[in-house]
């Protein structure tokens, strides 16, 4: 038996919106301590990893580990039934064939229920090693979103360069070339801060199209954390207050 109730259902709605363009069918892992999922996109270029702790739920019960195979596209359609102020409850029996999703609005007394059919997914076994990232950049999520969006109109690829003084996003295209450079800024106004933790400088190229997809999660978190290592994929991380973390992994583009 699994049951989890989230008071701020909007968070779950936003999470589904933030991953639905990247992954289609996903195995959701339910454990007594929380909910997690990990899945690659069909081109194997990007990976989504979500971890939600039971502590963030108003009520959480999972007697055993369970795997729920879900079509994210269909889950997104069901989530449209939820009002932004709804509480959301997820329920599944042992050996479940469907996931029951309940939306409740205590103010308006409206309740919506949907039984989403589960599917069997042959998922790849992913193993993400613990990695020490040599550059970690914490940046306002809205600002990072805007930088990626505007640079995409100028080029398909961005080169991210880090060093102890700044992080630089540079593009080169038919229009011309240029860069946005952000220095370390620990100003009192928290939302303006850009925090650089660089032990080794990194220079890598990435497809901006994917960064734009990841940035749909910017409404979940005030800050985006970029974790870089010269020999590793980029990690774009959004902390969800009191609940968990949504991470995206992106393979670099390699010059020949």
């Amino acid at each position: 038996m699994f049951e989890a109730k989230l008071t701020e259902g909007l968070i779950l709605k936003k999470i589904v919106e933030s991953i639905k363009d990247i992954v289609t069918d996903v195995n959701i892992d339910i454990s007594p301590s929380g909910i997690s999922l990990q899945a690659m996109d069909s081109s194997h270029v990007a990976l989504v990893s979500l971890n939600l702790s039971m502590d963030g739920f108003e009520h959480y019960r999972a007697d055993t580990n369970m795997v729920l195979g879900v079509s994210i596209a269909n889950l997104a359609k069901v989530m449209k039934l939820a009002d932004n102020n709804d509480q959301i409850t997820l329920q599944a029996d042992q050996e479940a064939t469907h996931l029951k999703i309940i939306f409740e609005n205590p103010k308006t007394e409206r309740t919506t229920e949907f039984n989403l059919n589960l599917i069997t997914i042959d998922s790849e076994h992913l193993a993400i090693p613990e990695t020490e990232y040599s550059s970690v950049v914490t940046i306002n999520s809205g600002e990072f979103s805007k930088i990626c969006k505007e640079l995409f109109s100028l080029s398909e690829t961005v080169q991210i360069t880090t060093n102890t003084d700044y992080v630089q996003f540079s593009v080169e295209g038919e229009v011309g070339s240029g860069q946005v450079r952000l220095g370390h800024n620990d100003s009192e106004k928290k939302e303006d801060q850009t925090i650089l933790e660089v032990s080794e400088s990194v220079q890598q190229q990435f497809a901006i199209r994917y960064l734009n997809m990841f940035n749909k999660a910017s409404t979940l978190s005030s800050f985006t954390r970029l974790c870089l290592h010269q020999e590793q994929p980029l990690v774009v991380e959004f902390k969800i207050d009191n609940l968990g973390v949504l991470k995206y992994f992106l393979a670099p583009k390699i010059s020949d």
Partner: peptide, 14 residues
């Protein structure tokens, strides 16, 4: 422009 790499060599368990 660089060539797009895949995540498989990094993360796919064999």
């Amino acid at each position: 422009l660089g060539k797009q790499h895949s995540l498989c060599p990094y993360y796919l368990a064999r």
